[in-house]
Design a protein around this nucleic acid. Sequence first.
DNA 1: CTCCTATATAACCCATCACTTATATAAGCT
DNA 2: AGCTTATATAAGTGATGGGTTATATAGGAG
Lengths: 110, 110
Amino acid sequence: MHAFDVLGDPVRRRILELLAEGELRSGEITDVIRAEFSITQAAVSQHLKVLRDSGFATSRVDGPRRIYRLEPAPLEQADAWLSRFRIFWTHKLEALATEVARGKKSRGED
Amino acid sequence: MHAFDVLGDPVRRRILELLAEGELRSGEITDVIRAEFSITQAAVSQHLKVLRDSGFATSRVDGPRRIYRLEPAPLEQADAWLSRFRIFWTHKLEALATEVARGKKSRGED
DNA sequence: CTCCTATATAACCCATCACTTATATAAGCT
DNA sequence: AGCTTATATAAGTGATGGGTTATATAGGAG
């Protein structure tokens, strides 16, 4: 599944927002998502699997719990793809500053 | 259709890349896409419709032709959503520089 | 007016996705 | 061992998306 396909789902985007704050237990994620989207625990677990399989998150076991952590690499790839369009909404000098700040790390991506 | 759903399709991403170079006729887009993806003219036209309906592109009539132009607003929204994660792959000062360069235009998006 | 080119739309099909309910797995407690 | 909690997986379903072929629309050329 391509990074942008993963980001196409609002539940997954929300999970990534939550994980941006720091590590979370599966149950904590499930509670928030269930409150906001009214879906079952199984559905949330399936979204977590998609995030794992696509490299957006990793999990580690803590007793009977799973702790999820954000993995930024696929997000960075998505960001790199979008970077070529940034010239359209920033002034040229500002765009240049952005590129300098990003260290021109991403070339020939996608 | 959410911006990230639109970006989830490789054909549409490729069309956006082409339009980033400048305006193109529907037929020019169709030729490139057909060569790269082996799909029909109708399929390309449907992708162009998705891009129009979701605000990623506009078209104007030139005789029997349609000229397509990139519209950056939805791409900027997608970029704004990703911006909250940039801290994960840039150093803090670099991330700050990026935010300054972007003029902190996007707050509370999505 | 008719024909051709350029493009979009309609109708249909099939695969995939997001969801559900039901069940499995595994750890901790008593 | 048996129960409970935490989480994942299996199986099935309905909706949607992206493709196809066929057709419509509209402008320019003869």
